[in-house]
Design a protein around this nucleic acid. Structure first.
Lengths: 259, 259
DNA sequence: GAGTGGTCTAGACCACTCA
DNA sequence: GAGTGGTCTAGACCACTCC
């Protein structure tokens, strides 16, 4: 512990935050460890409780600490990184009966079972939001199948994914069912003769807003990756998937043309 | 304005934040607008000043508001989105004498001049950090050229990019100079016979830490995109670029193989 | 029940901005 | 100099957790 410098330009609460941050990054307090309580720090530094709270507020905003009412404050461990590789939509995976996310989790050595770890949030026919309809080359009035799911891996909600499939492509296939079968939506589309030729992903980082923040169990201000994937069969967009990912839980890899 | 519900489970400061947030999203207060002062809100809601501050702290953490000491609190306008397209490293751009970032900014219609908007932060020969050296297939002892630059577009710092080039590839070329010439590093590498075959990008989202937070002029807790690009000529990695982007200022597009 | 964090009030002094 | 936000203290009541 560094003694406070009351004559410093740096605010007391920042000095306390600096002290705690240093201890965290130095490993004095590891991920999941309980940090000193407010009253302990009040005694240690000889400051008001609100000043200690202010220091913690800073560390929480930085994503280093989280708070549990009645229990204490703890070092935020980064969720283990899930790598999304650029070949995750390779046909061989679909042929092997595996959906892209399943492939990723297996490669990462995660305990993941699509049957129990994917919750259906919404499954209906309806219209698509304008931005999605535009990507599908549809008007807002055209009907699509809407499938919203939440993926929870090892107790951690990782992503909310909403797929939109033009109704004429989904009807009469397992895409309409809760369980789309081996290889997922893309496998079913290819079985129906819509061979995928191209997949694009547009991604942006946002600060989580309700209800995504709640569904991913994120703290206020936490970033999410908003990823919109469009799958093409020839010139036709056959599916759009609108996904929100727990940003700090993923690493994404892509390959770019150099030619 | 919604009157406060003192008997509600929802904290007073949250109710005030909800009220302000609703006004912001409804456009009552547009980007850059000054929000009501603390004393005004104290009078309006009949609460303590600290409670108003608590409400603002929430909106600031959410990235909706920023504060200027002595002046007021203002609606945070999202920086205009810069789209990074998947073909930005196409050879035709280099042939046309344009670096990838230049291409992007032109396509976005931004006023951007590489001669004045790129600041050199570091230019030296030395060793690369371990993670970078590994990507280059080098040992930590091997010498590389290090080029760190900050890109400021229309007054907004957008990215900090540090390139690492094995010294044997950089020596004797303009890559060693502050100005790498038309088409940038990649154009010079190709002129030396190192025809680029493949470019990979690995990206992760992080909460900005010093000094990146300062260099990008970001508020506490703001997300950055940490992007590591590796350029290959045949099997050899000829450059690694380690970049931090202002996360909310960019939208990235990629194309994925479906086959 | 003891300890923890969550919220709210009252009041104070300060630093900064803008006219 | 008036108004703004930044910081700090003192004290209070409450809700939650864990034993």
């Amino acid at each position: 512990m560094t003694p406070l410098d009351r004559s410093s330009d740096r605010a007391i609460y920042r000095q306390i935050a600096d002290d705690l941050r240093a201890d965290i990054t130095a490993g004095v307090h590891g991920p999941g460890d309980r940090l000193p309580s407010e009253s302990e720090l009040v005694a240690r530094y000889g400051v008001n409780r609100r000043t200690v709270q202010h220091a913690f507020a800073l560390l929480i905003a930085e994503g280093l600490v989280y708070s549990e009412h009645g229990s204490g404050r703890f070092v935020q461990g980064r969720p283990p990184v899930r790598r999304l590789a650029s070949d995750r939509f390779a046909r061989r995976h679909r042929r092997a009966g595996k959906a892209a996310f399943t492939v990723e989790m297996e490669q990462a050595g995660r305990a993941y079972d699509p049957a129990s770890d994917v919750e259906m949030l919404d499954l209906r026919t309806g219209s698509a939001p304008e931005a999605i309809a535009a990507r599908l080359g549809l008007s807002g009035a055209d009907k699509v199948l809407v499938r919203a799911r939440r993926y929870v891996v090892e107790g951690l909600p990782l992503q909310i994914a909403t797929s939109y499939v033009p109704l004429d492509l989904a009807e009469g296939t397992a895409i309409m069912s809760a369980d789309t079968g081996p290889g997922g939506i893309y496998a079913r589309l290819e079985e129906s003769g819509h061979r995928l030729t191209r997949i694009t992903e547009d991604l942006a980082v946002e600060v989580a807003a309700e209800p995504v923040q709640r569904l991913l169990r994120l703290p206020v201000g936490a970033p999410v990756i908003h990823l919109i994937r469009t799958a093409f069969a020839g010139e036709r967009a056959v599916e759009v998937c609108d996904t929100h990912l727990n940003a700090t839980a993923f690493e994404l890899s892509y390959e770019l043309p150099a030619r």
